[in-house]
Amino acid sequence: MPEHYEDHDVNAGHPESEQHIVSPMVYFIIFLALLVGTGLTIGASYLEMGPWNPVVAIFIACVKATLVVLFFMHIKYSSKLMKLTVGAGVFTFLILVGMSLADYFTRAWGQW
């Protein structure tokens, strides 16, 4: 019976879905990068940048989150299906949050 499945090998043509073991060195470098990011975001919060303070803080947080998703959560080494799923989820999330914020932040546009 195993012959029957050979035609339907789910991994045929998807070499990226093979189990990939990420080395401890990669984890350690990402860990250091996250520490540097934390230091940067704390440092940046003491600078006077006006409306750019939240932008810089959220940008650094996004970079840190991307590192965690790609390396700690193995998405960099995952199949295209997983990458697309995560990408589609984040995209939908950004639409929901972005559109809601765009609405509220522009209701009094020009009236101040």
Binding site: T41, A44, L47
Partner: peptide, 25 residues
Amino acid sequence: FGLYWHFVDIVWIFLFPLLYLISRH
């Protein structure tokens, strides 16, 4: 479980600047 734990970490990565930092200056 690792995925879950990292996700909780990501939530904190956003909570920390938003609650503690962006109005600090």
